[in-house]
């Protein structure tokens, strides 16, 4: 038995793949920004907020980190409409990705905050900075610099996780692939190609974020 692989049949549908790449990158970009910001806020709440808030955020982090992304997505997309929140697949995906990323980002950022030397905080207080100013200008930038590689890895994981969003018909990369293979039955070839595209995306996004971090996110 011989197996003939025909990648051309899949590559012929390149416009669909391109749209898929755009959606995957778009979803990732939006949820990375929102997720990391939420993560920073939650990290503040967990390390410096009132006790009640610390407990609530702690429970949130554990709940999200110990359930699969696909279940979170299905809960938001299929479950919430039953409770009165009707969401489009795209919005549901972004919410699920932000929720997922923020839980991991909270723990990552918190580790960075806790590694900030006490003396820096004390110096800020002695310069009459308010607690908010201290957190925003003194504690956060070096904390982010310290944990940036871990945060970038988590963003990549969320990007790869967004493949699941195709299950609720968001036109992202994996959804595009499923569509293509349902038209030409070149399933294996289609998924080989999409795996290669994801590899390139993961590599490029990692490089880009590693480059952008020190320049735009936490300064010098």
């Amino acid at each position: 038995m011989t197996v003939e692989l025909d990648f051309g049949a899949v590559l012929a549908s390149w416009p669909l793949l391109l749209v898929g790449v755009a959606w995957t990158l778009g979803l990732t970009a939006v949820s990375a920004v929102l997720g990391v910001l939420t993560g920073i806020a939650f990290a503040w709440a967990r390390s410096e907020g009132p006790v009640l808030l610390q407990t609530v955020v702690g429970a949130y982090v554990e709940l999200i980190r110990n359930t699969p992304f696909i279940v979170q997505l299905f809960f938001i997309f299929f479950g919430l409409p039953a409770a009165g929140f009707r969401l489009s697949p795209e919005v549901a995906s972004v919410i699920a990705m932000v929720v997922n990323l923020s839980a991991y980002a909270t723990e990552i950022v918190r580790a960075g905050i806790e590694a900030t030397p006490r003396g820096q905080r004390e110096a800020a207080i002695s310069l009459a900075l308010s607690p908010t100013q201290t957190f925003v200008y003194v504690v956060t930038p070096p904390a982010l610099a310290r944990i940036w590689p871990a945060l970038v890895s988590q963003i990549i994981i969320v990007m790869l996780g967004s493949a699941v969003c195709g299950q609720i018909s968001v036109p992202e990369l994996t959804f595009a692939t499923s569509l293509i293979q349902s038209r030409n039955f070149r399933s294996f070839e289609a998924f080989i190609i999409v795996a290669a595209i994801y590899l390139v995306l993961a590599f490029t996004v990692r490089r880009l974020l590693r480059w952008a971090g020190p320049r735009f996110v936490f300064g010098r």
Binding site: T174, V194, L199
Partner: peptide
């Protein structure tokens, strides 16, 4: 590690 588990 660079491809989604779903695609795998």
């Amino acid at each position: 590690q660079g491809t989604p588990l779903l695609v795998q």
